[in-house]
Amino acid sequence: MTLRGNSSLIVLAITYWLYFGQLGVLVPYLGIFLDGRGFSSADIGELFAVITLARILGPGLWAGVADKTGNAIGIMRLGCLLTVVTFSSVFYFSSFWGLTLSFGLMMMFWTAVLPQLEVITMNTVAKTSATYGQIRLWGSVGFICLTVMVGKALDLFSTESPVYVSVGVLAMLFVSTLFINAPAENASQENAVGSIWKFAKQRPFAVFIFASACLQISFGAFYGFFALYMRDLGYSGQQTGVFIALGVLAEVGIFLIARQLIDKFGVWNLLFASLLLTSMRWYLMAAFADYFVVIIISQLIHALSFGLTHAVSVHFIHQYLPKAYQSRGQAVYISIAFGLGGAFGNYMAGQQWSQGTNAYITFVTAAVFAAAGALSLLLCSKRSMNSAPQH
């Protein structure tokens, strides 16, 4: 394996394991935790939306500082430390607004981590024979391990299990960042030329962001209510964990071959195909979720819905933007797609779900947004998205 003997890559792999392992705890099970605290589906959707909004402001602020100071690692470490401190407050709050504050602050600091980690990883692997996908796949492995473990914990213990595990994982994440060995780079002179928006407003980048936002809107039903949906269909917490882990396991295979796929098919083709198949995935969940095999097929498509789209997106931003703007480019992607798109998707799904009675219409709506994202790619040429512009 390419990572063997390279301590920098190993530490990055561990950091990805912990970062996405934490997502494997909260993304599937936050709804169950909040349900256990007595919140309605509308409350859950609204809380998801409010805390997701924290992803709009945070990434740009953190990435701007990281790009201008050249100290991406310092920003990432500070974000990890403040994340675990603020998240610990969930043990002291029980009201809607108290938990919203807790999760919102946690998310604000959490957004300091990934853009910097992605840039550090891309710059580190550029000097080795490893690929981004070979490092990133360990995040998927972490997601699988912790999703299955917490799913079992929910069967054995209480709906509070996810938050107890989260505190431990976040603490270890902070420790892992202390061992990342990548020298801080000097701030680029390009910072004086203009802001990230001179690139973001160009058609290929703007279309990419819009399509990505549509994808994240479509994920609202899945992120907020998949675990509750499976419970309503009669599956145990452990089975739900296995379903989710299956989807992420498929991601691992995609990450191993993502670079080859990008080189062969290009950014535009892969995004278009992934968004169309994601639309089909949500419709299958809407109309045929009673069938076990449909859940399996749906979760396998997750390799494209999340894994391939993420690898392609990181590649696109890295090759489209000058080095001095890459952290901010990642931040724009996270802020608009995951922040605005995710918040709207979570809120809309929460309003539609109605304790599971409107599961069909909620997932059909998700399918429509994923299809809209695919169709939006027709607004720019394949060539403009597959090659870097003249800066």
Rank of each mutant, 00 (worst) to 15 (best):
V242P: 10
D43W: 05
V27E: 10
Y283N: 10
A211H: 01
L18I: 07
G345L: 11
I336Q: 02
L9D: 05
N346W: 01
L304D: 12
R77W: 01
L270E: 04
A171E: 08
V65F: 15
L34Q: 01
G31H: 00
Q299I: 01
F288Q: 11
S195A: 13
V125M: 06
M348P: 00
G70E: 06
L18A: 09
R203D: 09
V11G: 00
E190Q: 15
L249M: 15
A250T: 09
G104Y: 12
F226K: 08
S279A: 11
V314S: 01
A286D: 03
A126N: 11
S161G: 10
G237E: 07
V65Y: 15
E160R: 14
V193F: 14
A49I: 05
L228H: 10
F226D: 05
A130R: 00
A324E: 07
A287D: 07
Q390C: 10
Y29P: 11
P204L: 12
Q319C: 10
P389W: 04
L101N: 04
L12N: 06
A388D: 09
L300Y: 10
A112Y: 01
G237K: 13
T362F: 07
G142V: 06
L105G: 08
S89K: 12
Y320S: 07
T69S: 14
P28K: 06
S7L: 14
V165Y: 12
L275A: 03
I336G: 01
T69I: 15
M385L: 03
E160F: 13
V175A: 14
G104C: 06
W62E: 00
E118S: 11
C214F: 08
S176F: 09
T100V: 11
A371E: 04
V332P: 03
Y16G: 08
F20Q: 03
